[in-house]
């Protein structure tokens, strides 16, 4: 990580070294964990005339990486998973508790923080947020990385070959996730335009006094 640019939020010269997170980062992490949860509470959005239901939770994961950057996006997802693990029914469909970490989709959940990290990492590499960069970051981090953990665990738990597991993932999740990658890119661009100064994290000179 380039400490000069990668984590260039307001008041934290000490952060990139991995010491204490400043209050503002704690707030952003907590509130984004809340956002991921709130997006799961919202009823699913239906695409293509209601044929494809999309829950927005993984959109929240992509946005966490895109908007907060690698480190804080990772931590926001981790905090969200911690809330699920202690029994809050925050996964879409009102699921929660330790059971979800023993089920077949546990790998996808564990993939969320890493996916957000990779998404944020890619975004932080580029000087300005363009559509191609955003798409690349969201697809690689939010889809590929999450699947790279989700599919093997799923295949193991339901005892199929990885190939069959990949087919299942591609058929069930991929259309929705690619749509969310596009939405996340557009939303991130919109947010960066709307908030040039105050909370636009991951920008150079996002200083707020």
């Amino acid at each position: 990580m380039r400490p000069d640019q990668s984590d260039n939020h307001a008041d934290s010269p000490q952060t990139p070294s991995g010491r204490r997170l400043p209050a503002r980062d704690l707030a952003l992490i907590a509130v984004f964990a809340g956002l991921i949860a709130a997006l799961g509470l919202a009823p699913p959005v239906y695409l293509f005339g209601g044929s494809v239901p999309i829950t927005l939770q993984t959109l929240g994961v992509m946005l966490a990486g895109s908007v907060l950057g690698a480190r804080r996006g990772f931590l926001a997802c981790l905090v969200f998973l911690a809330l699920v693990a202690i029994g809050l029914p925050l996964l879409s469909g009102g699921r929660g508790g330790l059971g979800v970490f023993a089920g077949p989709s546990a790998g996808y959940l564990v993939g969320w923080p890493l996916g957000a990290f990779v998404t944020g990492w890619i975004v932080e590499r580029s000087r300005r947020y363009s559509i191609p960069v955003g798409l690349l970051a969201n697809v690689v981090g939010g889809v590929l990385v999450v699947y790279a953990l989700g599919i093997p665990v799923q295949s193991w738990r339901i005892s199929t070959s990885t190939f069959v597991g990949t087919l299942i993932a591609a058929a069930v999740y991929l259309p929705g996730d690619l749509t969310k990658a596009v939405v996340s890119t557009l939303v991130t661009r919109g947010v960066r335009r709307a908030l040039p100064t105050p909370a636009g994290p991951g920008r150079t000179g996002s200083d707020r006094t």
């Binding site: 209050a23 956002l35 908007v67 909370a199």
Partner: peptide, 29 residues
Amino acid sequence: LTAFAVPLLVRTLRYADNLGEALAARGVD
């Protein structure tokens, strides 16, 4: 979705900013 999510994110980030200031004011840093 985009027209919904952008204002949501803006409000969410504002809330986070206020929260961060409140925490800093209480000496969290």
